[in-house]
């Protein structure tokens, strides 16, 4: 089984910040907006290097989305930065009308997504954002798994014409994907080849899925682990090819069960090749204060939950 080496422990938001600064050097049309969270979003380097292309909008996210839509009129490529909660739920109508329906080339970059925001609690721990964003026609939804991939994704979305929702997080997590990777929107990445169960994971759950696969291998279960960094457009061909081989599925995400990756994969399967499926996701509840690891455990989106789900779903195969 393929093993992944942890190069270092880094936060995905730093991947965004570093990717943005790199983009600033190579693409003069890239501009950035932030709603009073420059430090949290790691946008300080971009702000320092390109002050004329950085817009501090204060605590006014609705205005920020409108400004970003307007900046595209004249050819700019705006990257907005705030927490995932304030990037989506707070400004859904602004994104819907001024960005998505108006087909504006805005990159909505959202940090502190999910439970791993931690101690700030449920007011800030959005678990519905992927669902909201993937329902919007024309919106691309990306949730990379580590620092390197978030950096690569940040750079890649500048070349994609159309609105993008880029979701990442707060905590420092294992950084294991190649530093020199080229990020391909919509292309699922097979991390481990397996035969008995397909584990489709996104974001922070990708590393958990790799850990789970090691344990499952000791049980004699050969798990295929696929990184679904792009939830929309979903790599349907990769999903179907893997499930055709393994015959059952686990989905794993730091998101609500309703509207998330599990939802998206279920739709593909029921319409093409129905197969037993278990979802590792937050089940219709709000989060609470705690450390990221405590919360992942309490809300059943930890390595152990992926393992349990895989054992269960393998047992459901006829």
């Amino acid at each position: 089984m393929k093993e992944y080496e942890v190069q270092n422990i880094k936060d995905t938001r730093s991947g965004f910040g570093d990717g943005l600064t790199e983009l600033g050097k190579t693409n003069k049309d890239v501009v950035a907006l932030c709603a009073d969270l420059t430090g949290s979003l790691k946008m300080g380097d971009f702000q320092k290097a390109f002050p004329d292309r950085f817009f501090q909008v204060g605590i006014g996210e609705a205005n920020m989305m409108g400004l970003a839509a307007g900046l595209t009129i004249g050819g700019k490529i705006p990257f907005t930065g705030t927490f995932a909660n304030f990037s989506t739920g707070r400004v859904y109508d602004q994104i819907r009308q001024s960005i998505a329906y108006s087909d504006k080339n805005v990159k909505i970059c959202a940090s502190h997504a999910g439970l791993t925001l931690g101690e700030d609690g449920a007011t800030h721990q959005i678990l519905e954002d992927i669902g909201m964003m993937k329902m919007l026609p024309g919106m691309t939804v990306i949730n990379p798994c580590d620092y390197n991939q978030t950096k690569a994704a940040t750079i890649a979305i500048a070349d994609h014409v159309g609105p993008v929702y880029l979701r990442f997080g707060r905590p420092k997590v294992p950084n294991f994907t190649p530093a020199d990777q080229k990020f391909e929107i919509g292309k699922a990445l097979k991390l481990i080849e397996g035969a008995d169960v397909s584990i489709f994971a996104t974001g922070h759950l990708v590393w958990k899925a790799l850990e789970a696969a090691k344990v499952l291998a000791q049980d004699g279960i050969s798990a295929e682990v696929i990184n679904i960094h792009t939830i929309k457009p979903l790599d349907v061909a990769a999903v179907l090819a893997s499930v055709k081989k393994t015959g059952c599925v686990v989905t794993a995400e730091e998101h609500m069960m309703n509207g998330g990756l599990g939802d998206a994969i279920s739709q593909v399967l029921v319409r093409n090749n129905p197969a037993p499926l278990e979802m590792v996701a937050v089940n219709d509840t709000f989060g609470e204060s705690g450390t990221p690891e405590e919360l992942m455990t309490k809300y059943n989106i930890d390595t152990e939950d992926v393992i349990k789900a895989a054992r269960k779903v393998v047992g459901r195969k006829k």
């Binding site: 400004l67 900046l71 602004q94």
Partner: peptide
């Protein structure tokens, strides 16, 4: 107004 301002900034 926000959109118009964005266009003005551009």
């Amino acid at each position: 107004l926000s959109v118009a301002l964005g266009a003005a900034l551009a």
